[in-house]
Design a protein around this nucleic acid. Structure first.
Lengths: 336, 336
DNA sequence: TTGTATGCGTTATCAA
DNA sequence: TTGATAACGCATACAA
């Protein structure tokens, strides 16, 4: 393995000078720089990151912890973040985690090992934050979940108001004349996001003087086509008379629609369906999905702006709500 | 920051003994083990991976390089690989790369920094392999691309026969009576996969005595809904009389269908569409997508088996073709 | 502008 | 079964 020592020996300079060239520092003579770069290129040398990060104390980078590889909304946000960071002299360290992983634990590790100047959490579990976030001492922004309940001075948040948005989705079903509404979502005990959206549902029911019995009309599923498909079959078996369904993600909504069609229900003629997220898929599906459009671009830009505000301008934490939009699509039918 | 030294001091043992406990080695007294583990837990200590990997010379791990975060087929394969590895004492290091990143360069880095015993490439560019793969000296398997043209003793491959599969897709269109067929795929100059599938298309045309003029009926697009949507609009503007389209991925096929519908063509009544990959989405879309089903489970299991064969049994390289399947779906209509 | 020397936190070698 | 000590490859304070 070729190391910095080899480059030093081969170029006739010392290890430190090579290191200087490698890190683009300007206290090197143009001559030395040129010679060393030549040798580096010839040997195809790349510094060992383990050694680099072990030693390095600051790295002008920001870490992004993405919870859920399959989450298309997060994928869009990451892409947007990458575009923004490209124009700065920061480096991005993107780390993909399992949906149920402990993102704060990973954050602590990331800080120790890569010393980023700030962190962006795409999705997060408040439990983990309450338990361990005190160990994190760099500015952070929690994206897509509001963190105003937890009072950490270095934790901002940017999110869609899940309660209001879910309420808006269910309202849209009521507005179309539906009253027998089923809901398909995540485990409200474990998923904070699902919990918030669940509250929004309850509010909508309350406002429309309709009784909402979760045991009957709420069905739990994971955020995949398959799981939602099976969930919908259970739900419809229990409540065969529902005329509308709110699914807590677009992916779920698609699973729901397939289940309904397989049971010979037409969508939206027999049953209306509304999703959540507003990913590209919603627009490309047939029928076009009614959904809650989260503004992923705004979520991304504001997150980065706020993080930079905290890092560079020492601003204090902010909890910001980004507006959402109801996309009516073609999957809701007015009744009566 | 709490280090191994702190644990050593606090527990009354030496750094070496702590290291032994941390690495679950059995040359430690139960007493020492217990005491040290207690201190480790109390301090919430986790070893610094930079230091660990800098020093460590072998790590009973295998690296997975995934080219394209959005690629659902790869996501399924990764999941399958994870399940298989779980039952072994190997660790998985999954690394997500951009679609156009140099995976071999990353592989070289990964080997230097993490010293895996083997590597799995999900997707890969033969150009990069030819140029740099000689630098990689651990057993590798290229998955979803055949590497039989490059003769590296440590490189196996497991893949669907892209030529035969693409031919099968286009054959299916001919079989349904179509002759005016458009094709939407990637850049055949840059994407090896697209190139292979392109050849399969040519073969099918040849076999059906039909002239295939790429300049007219082949349209280039990226593997996204959006890009395929625009690509299809260009294609149909050029060839308004086509009655069938082969899209080189399911995602593309969905973009194609939306474009057609927006132009008031019905699918499949006016235009038939067939995709490629056979991801879950194909089954959940309306209409159910006709597609080439790649056996992602077999691809995954055979890749891992072959890699282990190379690592543990010192077997030599194999290039294996995994059969595909034609899923007829609902998006092809017989004509005449 | 350059070089020397030290240490980052860990594992591995060797001796006790 | 344990402990001292030398690496691992690099960045950096300090000296020249």
């Amino acid at each position: 393995m070729v190391t910095i020592k080899d480059i030093a020996r081969e170029s006739g300079y010392s290890v430190s000078t090579v290191s200087r060239v490698l890190n683009h520092r300007n206290d090197v003579s143009p001559d030395a720089k040129k010679k060393i770069e030549k040798v580096v290129a010839a040997y195809n040398f790349v510094p060992n990151n383990n050694a680099k990060h072990l030693k390095q104390s600051n790295s002008k980078s920001i870490g992004v912890l993405v919870k859920g590889i399959q989450n298309m909304l997060f994928a869009s946000i990451v892409e947007e973040i990458q575009c923004m960071i490209e124009n700065t002299d920061y480096t991005l360290i993107v780390s993909y985690l399992d949906e149920d992983a402990d993102e704060v634990e990973q954050a602590v590790l990331l800080c120790r090992e890569r010393k980023p100047l700030g962190l962006l959490f795409l999705g997060g579990n408040p439990e983990y934050f309450k338990k361990e976030f005190a160990q994190v001492d760099v500015p952070c922004v929690l994206v897509t979940n509001l963190a105003d309940q937890m009072d950490f001075p270095n934790l901002s948040s940017v999110a869609t108001d899940d309660i209001a948005a879910a309420k808006c989705a269910v309202d849209a079903l009521f507005d179309a004349g539906h009253t027998k509404i089923g809901i398909l979502g995540g485990d409200i005990e474990k998923s904070y996001t699902s919990h918030q959206r669940f509250i929004g549902c309850q509010q909508s029911f309350l406002e429309h003087d309709t009784v909402f019995v979760p045991e009957k009309s709420y069905e739990k599923a994971r955020f995949s086509y398959d799981s939602a498909y099976r969930g919908m079959k259970r739900l419809i078996a229990r409540c065969p008379d529902i005329t509308a369904v709110f699914a807590m993600s677009d992916v779920m909504a698609i699973g729901v629609i397939r289940a309904l069609r397989d049971l010979e229900y037409r969508v939206p003629e027999d049953v209306s369906v509304i999703g959540f997220d507003g990913t590209a898929l919603a627009e490309y599906y047939n029928p076009k999905l009614a959904t809650i459009k989260q503004q992923y671009q705004t979520l991304a830009t504001r997150s980065v702006e706020i993080l930079f505000g905290q890092i560079e301008l020492k601003r204090s934490q902010i909890h910001e709500i980004v507006p959402f939009e109801l996309a009516s699509g073609e999957s809701i039918q007015k009744i009566r």
